[in-house]
Design a protein around this nucleic acid. Sequence first.
DNA 1: TATTCATACTTGACAGTGTCTAGTACTAAA
DNA 2: TTTAGTACTAGACACTGTCAAGTATGAATA
Lengths: 192, 192
Amino acid sequence: MAPNKAEVLRRSVLDAAVAISAEIGPDAISMREVAREAGVSHQAPYHHFGDRAGIFAAISEEGYAELSKALLHSRTHGATSMCEAYVHFALQHKGHFRVMFSNDLCNVENYPGALVQADRAFSILLDEVTALLGNDASLSEAKAQATYMWSVAHGLATLLIDGPLEKKLGGITDVNALIKQVAQLASASIHA
Amino acid sequence: MAPNKAEVLRRSVLDAAVAISAEIGPDAISMREVAREAGVSHQAPYHHFGDRAGIFAAISEEGYAELSKALLHSRTHGATSMCEAYVHFALQHKGHFRVMFSNDLCNVENYPGALVQADRAFSILLDEVTALLGNDASLSEAKAQATYMWSVAHGLATLLIDGPLEKKLGGITDVNALIKQVAQLASASIHA
DNA sequence: TATTCATACTTGACAGTGTCTAGTACTAAA
DNA sequence: TTTAGTACTAGACACTGTCAAGTATGAATA
């Protein structure tokens, strides 16, 4: 079934928004600009997304779903590669990633569709850490370690994308190597 | 020497901006709003900050200077407390912290005053990690571990402030305890 | 086939925004 | 007393998000 015109518009609005987010930042996403790039009137996007926050919610939902996929795929290779997968997802989906965590523009909690995807992503991480810890670990211990893993991955991702990291390290020669090193340091503390 | 009227205005504009950033987010900071709250015309702030990005730069500069202070103070107590200090700084200076890392609104690299403070904060962290590693560690190893430490602290801070962490953990009973746990996990991988 | 009706838009308006330009007080030096 | 610079104010412009109202289109119904 070919996508109808409305679905095409919805998609091209999202694509334009994600591109702007990746190039400049989520703040630069403008209703009128994405409408212009999609070749429609400035009010057309409202029909699909309600308001500006609706666009951010849709991007977040999509982003969390993609993140879940990436995490699931990496899960079988242990904590290190899960951490790496998170960071690589962020770098490869910069536009999505930035929107997902700029919740002053759109609080994910208010959008059930996005929220369920966000929950799913975290569950995957929590399950993996719990499995690594074994049966003798308490739930609060597992949560603390999952939070720790998420913090490392998320911190590195945000520092690489938006932080003043590149300059400080004097031009990172091999980003992938750095990501691997950090991921290994991170997983060294799990099952301790 | 009492601060003159101009200095008072500059300060009250910054205070208003930081308050808005903490309550809603950096994006909600508006030239006209901060001018209104400072009781001046909508153009008065331009004289002190040039443009909107100038306000963000000033807040960043202030924030990085405060962060450096906090890190220096915690340094003598080891890597764990340095990590904790970073997160506590972020939580206690939410307004500053959000601005410091929302570089689509203001790229710190373009503001020498802010940049020098940012560099200083990272140097303190790098020095500490280098000292912990001892003489046999290479510079690139030290940088990787410093990046790792920064990632953990920064990741936890941003997840606590803007991320969907609170809900996922089912209402964190004791945030400070969680921060300590994560910080300990982080420093366990240093000098490995 | 003609009517109805929701969907998917367009057009126009309004308040609010950042910022440019131009003008006005005040203040301290010449 | 003039001058010059600092610290503002006032007005305008293009742009933004969004509300309200109108229009085309296409499918279901009578």
